[in-house]
Amino acid sequence: MSSTIYTPLVLCIYILAFVTGVPSNLLACYTFLVKVRQKPSPVGLFLLNLTISDLLLLFVLPFKMVEAVSGMTWPMPLFLCPIVTWVYFCSIYISILFLTAVSIERYLGVAYPMKYKVIRKTVYAVWICGFIWGFSALHGSVSFIVITVLPSNESQDGRCYQRFTAGQKKLLMPFRLEGSLLMFFIPFMITIFCYFNFVRLLLSMPKIRRKKKYRAICLAVATLFNFTLCFVPYNISHIVGFIQDKSSHWRVYALLLTTLNASIDPIIFYYSSTAVQKTFLKCLQGLKKKLCMQDNHEVHVELSKTSDTRTTYNNETSV
């Protein structure tokens, strides 16, 4: 794919993710925040943090849009480059780990309902959230070090995190491989195991309502589809890059798929939380009510104008 096609493609994906992801994630964030305040639960905390992670990625997308418009060069102040890069890549792995945490929580609640109910405490979920954020931020700081600390002898041509020296590659390529194995492939295998057994156990329970079983299957399929589509190509590029000792030319396209994760996550929220469904329906009903009121107001104005016109005409005729 040529550079003339690549830049418009990048911009279109960023705009699509931003336009669809921001309102849906803000709606989900508000819903989970209210739910956690009223009745805290591990799943609610995990989904709330997952939403915040997606919003962080979406909030740095305008910087990436400006970069795409500028022909994949960095026209903004240089100090923003490592910050945007750090937030962008950290949010990817934070989302992966929280999706995995949700799958583990769902599986344990079905496989060991009585035993897990005894040891299940919200404070443990708070510690897990803190660990995920801290570990991911620390792990992602390597990209910050590569940009700001290690010297670069190659001309960057105003580009951000795209060209690397031999010294930078010596640190970056093993780091990417380790990140893909530790923070994606292991969580991916755990998620597959949890959701496969989650669905299998639910289907074997005759007392569970059919609607609930359907939701569980949709949840598992949506999560695994999200993992496969958004994260597998990107993390495979790290393995290929380590073998070839360079960034694969198709890595940039695989990275675009990870951006779409912020738009796909709300689908998982919708299937996994009745609170999100109710909030979404309330918003639709409120929007529909406003539109109906606006239409009625416009009709009333038109009728008033018509009435005034008829009155004026009658007055003129009588004169």
Score class of each variant (00 low, 15 high):
Gln156Phe: 10
Arg163Cys: 13
Phe164Gly: 05
Leu171Val: 05
Phe164Ala: 04
Phe164Pro: 04
Ile145Arg: 09
Gly167His: 11
Gln156Val: 12
Lys169Tyr: 10
Ile147Gln: 06
Cys160Trp: 08
Val149Gln: 07
Gln156Asn: 04
Lys170Tyr: 10
Asp157Ser: 10
Gln162Met: 14
Gln162Trp: 08
Arg163Asn: 09
Asp157Trp: 00
Glu154Phe: 14
Pro151Tyr: 03
Asn153Leu: 08
Ser155Arg: 14
Pro151Val: 05
Ile145Phe: 12
Gly167Val: 05
Gly158Tyr: 13
Asp157Arg: 08
Leu171Lys: 03
Asp157Phe: 07
Val142Gln: 07
Ser155Asp: 14
Phe164Asp: 02
Cys160Gly: 04
Leu171Met: 06
Tyr161Ser: 07
Leu150His: 03
Lys170Asp: 06
Gln168His: 05
Ser155Ala: 13
Tyr161Ala: 09
Asn153Gln: 10
Ile145Gln: 06
Val149Gly: 02
Gly167Ile: 00
Leu171Gln: 00
Thr148Asn: 14
Gln156Ile: 10
Tyr161Met: 14
Asn153Gly: 11
Cys160Val: 03
Asn153Ile: 12
Arg159Phe: 11
Arg163Met: 15
Thr165Ala: 04
Val146Gly: 06
Ala166Phe: 05
Gln168Lys: 02
Ser143Phe: 11
Ile145Ser: 01
Leu150Met: 12
Glu154Val: 15
Tyr161Asp: 13
Val142His: 05
Val142Phe: 12
Arg163Gln: 14
Ser155Gly: 10
Arg159Gly: 11
Val142Leu: 00
Asp157Cys: 08
Val146Pro: 01
Val149Cys: 09
Gly158Ala: 10
Asn153Ala: 07
Ser152Gly: 07
Gln156Gly: 00
Lys169Thr: 05
Ser143Gln: 06
Ser143Ile: 13
Arg159Ser: 14
Arg159Tyr: 08
Lys170Ala: 12
Lys169Ser: 10
Val146Tyr: 05
Asn153Lys: 09
Gln168Trp: 10
Pro151Phe: 04
Val149Asp: 03
Thr165Asp: 11
Asp157Asn: 13
Thr148Cys: 10
Leu150Ala: 01
Gln156Leu: 12
Gln162Leu: 14
Gln156Arg: 04
Leu171Asn: 01
Asp157Glu: 15
Lys170Arg: 08
Lys170Asn: 03
Ala166Met: 07
Phe164Thr: 02
Pro151Thr: 03
Arg159Glu: 14
Gln162Glu: 15
Ala166Tyr: 05
Leu150Ile: 12
Thr165Gly: 02
Leu150Asp: 01
Ala166Glu: 09
Lys169Gln: 08
Gln156Thr: 14
Ile145Tyr: 13
Ser143Glu: 01
Phe164Cys: 06
Phe144Cys: 10
Thr148Phe: 00
Val142Ile: 15
Val142Gly: 00
Thr148Asp: 07
Asn153Arg: 12
Tyr161Glu: 12
Gly167Pro: 01
Ser143Asn: 00
Phe164Val: 04
Gln156Tyr: 01
Leu171Trp: 01
Pro151Arg: 04
Phe144Ile: 07
Ser143Val: 07
Arg163Glu: 01
Ile145Thr: 13
Thr148Glu: 09
Pro151Ser: 06
Lys169Trp: 05
Val146Arg: 07
Phe144Met: 13
Ile147Gly: 03
Ser155Leu: 11
Thr165Val: 06
Val146Asp: 02
Val142Met: 15
Ser143Lys: 12
